[in-house]
Nucleic acid binder design. Sequence first.
DNA 1: CATTTGTTTGACATTTTAGTTAAACAAAAT
DNA 2: ATTTTGTTTAACTAAAATGTCAAACAAATG
Lengths: 198, 198
Amino acid sequence: MAVRDTGAEQKIKDSAKKMFFSEGKLHATTQDIADAAGVNRTLLNYYFRTREILFETVFKEAMQEMGVKLDSVFLSKTPFYEKIEMFIDVFTAEITAYPYREIFLITEIHRQDVKHLNTGPGHSQIFKTFFVEVQSAIDGGILRASTTPLNFTMNLFSIMAYPVIMEPLYRNMFDLNAEQFAENLKTRKAEILDMLFK
Amino acid sequence: MAVRDTGAEQKIKDSAKKMFFSEGKLHATTQDIADAAGVNRTLLNYYFRTREILFETVFKEAMQEMGVKLDSVFLSKTPFYEKIEMFIDVFTAEITAYPYREIFLITEIHRQDVKHLNTGPGHSQIFKTFFVEVQSAIDGGILRASTTPLNFTMNLFSIMAYPVIMEPLYRNMFDLNAEQFAENLKTRKAEILDMLFK
DNA sequence: CATTTGTTTGACATTTTAGTTAAACAAAAT
DNA sequence: ATTTTGTTTAACTAAAATGTCAAACAAATG
């Protein structure tokens, strides 16, 4: 049978991911997405039936991509400090590419009718395992005694993600241009490690 | 002249603030807002002319309210550590009441046409003053030498705001119910202070 | 080269949303 | 009691956005 695959379907998904997750255009319409992809809007319906399904598809793909990458870090047998370093590197790459992905999820969850909120089930177990490791680091004196695995993990996510998301606001508040802000972000890995570890 | 003021205008603003800033319903329509306020949708147009103006109005009000509160902290003559404690208390109250306010701003900024992005001008100067204070704390050995005023401030914002915003996702990822999550948030002030200060 | 199969388009229908208008209404002032 | 002024509503218009459909198209297959 003839399988042509001119790449339109992929172009649409890439375009949607870029608008939603990279550019933060949470109100993008199907027309916006089609235009950015350089295809006719009807193709969105041809490939994905409805706009909702397109949303689900790209979101699930994005979450799964991240899941795979984070798992490769969390499940590795590296010593704790090096593991966190790896995590920072991987997560920084993710958040830089898709700073608004989680925000997209949250706003979709909060929309009138919640249909596709699943972040994937297996995650909870992986974090339980990771939390044991963090607890060992606390008990072993590598981390501050005042922290907990949950707080440690949330802090880590927060410190890496939030500044990237808030860039437009922070640049205004702190009077920084794009270069200055980008330059500062680079200095943060060392800072984060120093802050989290004792 | 007859000034009746049945409170509809205020009800609309409160309803909009609640939907956008508290509940994170960034896609709320004028009908949604009117319904939640218990008024006829036409009243939104009567009082605010357009939906855009309503957005601007509630956002400016919300930012100004926060500005006043933060200024009262930043400009107070309290010693540095106590000042940060005050800040955490004030900001926690703010972020609990309006967790999605800044996210709303960011998504509006990223919308096709950027019209009302002004966060207010005076802020930049206030932060410059605060940054001097932070630098003194670094020089005085109260804060880690590896930090900078900018990083210290962004970390503070991040750690407080992000977990609240991400609650629906984190509860899923970490398998927590609403009570467990709320309980944990309460433990964070001590943790944050311990992490930020040497 | 005709057929099959998947792809793409334009035209249309439907739904949703924002904005307008004129009239009804209610309370205060004259 | 009537006028004035501000408030509220229903009905309507206009625009924007989603979804459907039939026909055109292009490449591989027989």
